[in-house]
């Protein structure tokens, strides 16, 4: 394919792909009156931040904070627990290690539907239903198998000599984990952290399974509520979607390479 033909084809597809996003961004900056009078598809006659202000003050700010409170601890705990498990399972002859690895991965492959009713009841039983804590622990539990699987594969590829040298120098297994193995695992941890961040930030199903009050809803389910609240206020709905997309787009742009390599390595979700 010649260069010119390539750029025409690829350029056209890319523009078509981005068109819906452009349409929504433009809508978000229009005023309600302009849309009501001229229609959604008309050339904009207004430019205002009112849609963003409405979306942000009517639950957006609180929802964003809830998302931070869920996403940060979930990503941290998931990676902490799974890297510990991965270290033990990849560098030591743990009895039944293969079975444990596959069992943990199998748990992550289960369709979440089979867990929804029991998990919802379990959180009620523990008295944590409708709290962000419940959402954190549920998502940590469900994600662990996948992260452990990816990390143990990565850690197994490390040369044995490093561990042996450190052992001769008198370092214990925990020290080796902390000082040597974890730093060497950084690329994989970065990839998984970027991926986990978007999965957890974008989650809807677990949130609406263990949460009920609008005051505790993170961004993704709150966006759904915004839609119900602002029926046909398309500038507010569009602005809400833009706000909800900003954190994951930012993470993607900042960690693009990690992100892509994480997807290619994992390929389960």
């Amino acid at each position: 394919m010649s260069n010119r033909v390539f750029h025409v084809v690829a350029g056209t597809i890319s523009v078509l792909w981005l068109l819906p996003i452009a349409a929504v961004i433009i809508t978000a900056f229009r005023s309600f009156d302009d849309i009501a009078a001229n229609g959604l598809a008309a050339v904009p006659q207004s430019f205002t931040l009112a849609g963003f202000a409405d979306a942000w003050t009517n639950g957006g700010a609180g929802a964003m904070w809830n998302s931070v409170l869920v996403t940060v601890p979930t990503v941290f705990l998931s990676l902490a627990l799974s890297s510990a498990a991965a270290y033990a399972l990849s560098r030591f002859e743990i009895p039944g290690r293969r079975t444990v690895i596959l069992l943990m991965l199998a748990g992550n492959l289960l369709p979440p539907q089979i867990l929804l009713v029991p998990v919802s009841k379990l959180t009620e039983l523990l008295g944590i239903y409708d709290t962000l804590f419940a959402l954190v622990v549920v998502q940590v539990g469900f994600g662990l198998g996948f992260y452990t699987f990816v990390l143990q594969g990565f850690m197994r590829a490390m040369p044995n000599e490093v561990q042996e040298a450190a052992t001769i120098d008198g370092a214990g297994p925990v020290q080796i984990f902390w000082r040597i193995v974890l730093p060497m695992t950084r690329p994989a941890l970065a990839a998984l952290a970027a991926l986990a961040f978007t999965w957890i930030f974008n989650d809807l199903l677990w949130a609406i399974t263990v949460l009920r009050s609008s005051s505790v809803m993170p961004v993704t389910p709150a966006l759904l509520a915004l839609q119900g609240q602002y029926v046909s206020n398309w500038n507010v709905i569009a602005a809400g979607s833009v706000i909800a997309a900003i954190p994951t787009v930012a993470v993607f742009l900042r960690f693009q390479r990690h992100f892509i390599s994480g997807l290619a390595v994992g390929a389960v979700k």
Partner: peptide, 8 residues
């Protein structure tokens, strides 16, 4: 679009 939530 892959990084957007399905709700967005």
């Amino acid at each position: 679009p892959v990084v957007f939530s399905l709700v967005a």
